[in-house]
Simulated scan of single mutants.
Amino acid sequence: MSRLDETKPFVPVRIAVLTVSDTRTLAEDRSGGTLVARIEGAGHMLAARKIIRDERAEIAAQLRAWAQDPEIDVIISTGGTGLTGRDVTVEAHRDVYEKEIDAFGTVFTMVSMQKIGTSAVQSRATGGVAHGTYMFALPGSTGACKDAWDEILVKQLDYRHLPCNFVEIMPRLEEHMRRK
């Protein structure tokens, strides 16, 4: 079972938060604010924060820019993961991914089922990697952001988490790019 190895040092990561919304402002962005509070509360660093419209090309461009920024290790977006016509965040993420973390959506659905029952099927939360940067697309609800962070990301973004975690393999995410 998973646990923390208290003998290992905590390794903070640099996380960018992207809120996808046609209507929210920074002052009204409760989901983004929830993520920022949890990121900083866990000891990680907020590397960037932005609100962007529900436009696939704009979202993908921002994800690409942040993924190529050496000062950003992880990108978490909130909003645009549903089923309506304007929900294009998942498609934008997949436009950028080099590899998808298939189990992230599955585990998120399992967590959500405990909270909202079968309504969990309406979320298309996803995770992936591009340019050595982890990317996660979460629903726009504050509850979903809390659930994803508290039940999945806080553990996987902690180097001390056993039996394995995302942080310990960060140095190897781009090993295919090294010269042989």
Rank of each mutant, 00 (worst) to 15 (best):
D54N: 10
L173N: 15
E28V: 01
I59Q: 02
A48S: 13
K8P: 05
K180V: 15
F10Q: 12
Q114F: 01
V17E: 11
V129C: 00
K180F: 06
T34R: 13
P70E: 05
L4R: 02
L4I: 15
H93E: 01
T142L: 03
Y134S: 01
R94H: 07
G117Q: 12
K8H: 00
T118W: 10
M135C: 01
I169K: 08
V90K: 05
R178Y: 02
V11I: 13
I76Y: 08
G117H: 06
Q114I: 07
I52L: 08
M170A: 07
I75A: 03
T81V: 03
A27G: 10
A92Q: 11
A37S: 12
G79I: 02
D69C: 13
T19Y: 03
S77R: 14
E91S: 14
D150F: 04
D29E: 10
P12D: 10
A103N: 04
S141V: 02
I39N: 13
K8G: 00
E91G: 13
V107K: 15
V90E: 04
R172G: 01
V90F: 06
G143M: 05
R160G: 10
R38T: 02
V17W: 10
N165I: 14
S112C: 03
D5R: 09
C145E: 05
P70T: 00
T109S: 11
V11F: 00
R24L: 08
V154K: 09
N165L: 12
K115N: 06
F166L: 15
T34I: 02
R124Q: 12
T25N: 05
R94N: 04
H93V: 07
E6P: 04
R49C: 02
T133I: 07
H161A: 14
R56C: 14
M177L: 14
R64D: 05
G117F: 09
M113F: 07
D150Y: 09
W149A: 08
D73H: 11
A37R: 14
S2Q: 06
A103F: 01
F108Q: 12
V96P: 06
V88P: 05
S21Y: 04
R53G: 11
V11W: 03
K180T: 15
K155A: 10
G79F: 05
A16K: 12
I59W: 05
I15E: 12
G143A: 10
D95Q: 13
G128M: 07
A144V: 00
A48I: 00
G117M: 04
A130M: 10
A61V: 14
H131K: 11
C164A: 14
I152F: 03
T133Y: 09
K180N: 13
V17N: 10
T23Y: 07
T118K: 14
H176W: 04
V107R: 14
F166H: 13
R94E: 14
S119P: 03
I72V: 15
T133Q: 06
L153N: 13
L4N: 09
L173M: 09
H93W: 03
I169P: 00
H44V: 03
A60T: 09
V96T: 07
H131N: 15
R178T: 07
T7F: 01
A120Q: 07
V111W: 13
D54M: 08
